[in-house]
Design a binder for these strands. Structure first.
Lengths: 189, 189, 189, 189
DNA sequence: AATGAATGAGCCTTCATTCAT
DNA sequence: CATGAATGAAGGCTCATTCAT
């Protein structure tokens, strides 16, 4: 029962996802993907009807993976406060391991000008669910405060999360992560 | 002394910049630019040695325009606090007028994976100078507080500025702008 | 004893034939055929060794169907004259029901440049047998005239038949059919 | 002042036209055309924006060439009767010199199922103008008969012309030409 | 300064066919 | 009988760039 190559389609999605993230969706050709997987052109189009389709599959898988990792990480934290902090700990890890390539979803957002596209839809949904998560945790943490107050703080926390991703990618320094980490602790008092 | 078409090179840069911003740098072909300007291929390459070069010129011009507009707007404000608020007022205006296409610099950042490129350098410089501006104003505002305190607040303000750009682009709603506006006022107390 | 789907091979041939006629043999892909039938690629190549083979089978079946319909129609007519007129009545019906797609055989003729191909052979045979039918009927009608005279008239009738097919397809009007109908009656005096 | 290669665009159109006629429009690839002309892909698309465009240009040029040759040939004939006969003499020549590839317009008609296409439009126009020519000549010939009578005869003559083209292509024999020639003389009495 | 013809590698996608299961 | 994964050549077309004029 080998670890590698459970199926060509999975291989394709995994390899394509890596390249898409590394060098961008538009900048990646189907040729490069199939060469790196070691399959023929026709095999690619047997499994995915278009480049956009594998792009959507890539973002959906990235969303699923993130949600799974997040659920696992947050389960280990006890209080809403600890869960929020755990979220930012994931962010720090990601920025380090991703070689400052930033966020696959935000990068795709920038590459895709038309807001009507299917990939853009996946981006919106991913960010919306992340924001909902932050809102839920923040409301729980500020259960003694008004919902208006808690939601405002939640939005700020979410925005800082996003900004850390983008500014780390741009500056390739660690001040964004440190700043949001410190501000987060202040917000959660 | 006609207003339009001061020089072919300026026309080129202006038109190319509009298209780059609207549909992305990589997604824009040289053909489309020359067709919209109404010049020949050779003329393009007489004025700009490559597509990257006009890309760099575009971002540099965008940086200059931003700085000029910022200087003008901030001159009209009296206190550092008012200047910071004026900065966010510019942000709000931009987001509305740009049809949620976000920030030319951050979009280019996402499109250009290699951190060594010249365009990436312009992006870094632009954002670095914006951050320096925020730091200067914030230090002036918090002149009674420590520099460490002021700088932390400056970074937070800057990150919220960036996040508002990105999240407005993604959601096409106005909650990001409203959130950062409210938080800014709280930070400046 | 169900009417539909007597066998996969028959389904294949029927569906492929409909598509070939509607959009042309060369313009039709094997994928479209199997998708519309609802079978796998391998099943197609189990029943037909190549696309050309199903093309040949299509034309042979179309020839058989035409001959059967013609035999039935002509049996109901008593005189050679009435049989010839019945033939043109079939033509009129065909042009109307086929949505002016013309003649499967003549269309294939145009698509297949090499005169040596097997499909071209089927086309030739079909048209040759139709011409022979017209010759037989015309000789019977003109039994009091010389064979040379009758054969010439037969060829003219056959050519008008063919022209009506082609020109109806091109013009999508009914003047070709009306013209040949009127001329036929004149020829048969 | 060399005879060959007056311009690359003319070369392209001439060579493409020859191949289109020889092996069909759909069956001809852009690659084959540029290889035979000896130019690069980009040059093809510099001169023609699509394969369909060069297809349209090919049919329009064929139509122009036919009309020019027809005008020249008919000018030399004195009576309407001689002009019609001259038309059929052109037909005979064409069938022999074209190696029985038939009519570029009718072949394109068969290859292009959608009646809305631009190429189909050119086909219709070509045949319509040929029919109008035959009608004009036939009315002149039958100036003592009614217009209804003359027009009917004109349509028959036109249909025989078309049928000769198609049936010669199919049979690769000369009976169609001989039959229509003989019938034409009978019609013109 | 400006033109526009020419290049050829590359784009995404479809093709008819094969074959292990 | 039937499946569906795999092939690789070919499809039409766009790309940034060069260069003679």
């Amino acid at each position: 029962m080998s670890v590698k190559s459970q199926s060509k389609k999975e291989d394709l999605l995994r390899v394509a996802g890596e390249i898409f993230f590394r060098q961008g969706f538009a900048a990646t050709g189907v040729k490069q993907i199939i060469d790196e997987v070691g399959i023929a052109k026709g095999t690619f189009y047997f499994h995915f009807s278009s480049k956009e389709e594998i792009g959507i599959a890539w973002l959906k898988a990235a969303n699923d993976n993130w949600n799974a990792a997040m659920a696992e990480k947050l389960d280990k934290a006890n209080s809403p406060r600890d869960k929020i902090i755990a979220l930012f700990s994931m962010l720090e890890d990601w920025i380090k391991t991703s070689d400052y390539r930033g966020c696959a979803f935000l990068n795709s957002l920038a590459e895709l000008p038309q807001p009507e596209g299917l990939m853009r839809e996946v981006v919106r949904e991913h960010k919306e669910s992340l924001r909902a998560e932050v809102v839920g945790l923040t409301r729980a943490h500020f259960s003694d405060k008004s919902k208006v107050y808690a939601d405002h703080k939640a939005y700020v926390i979410y925005l800082l999360f996003e900004a850390a991703l983008v500014e780390s990618q741009n500056s390739r320094e660690d001040w964004p992560v440190k700043t949001v980490h410190q501000e987060l602790l202040a917000i959660l008092s």
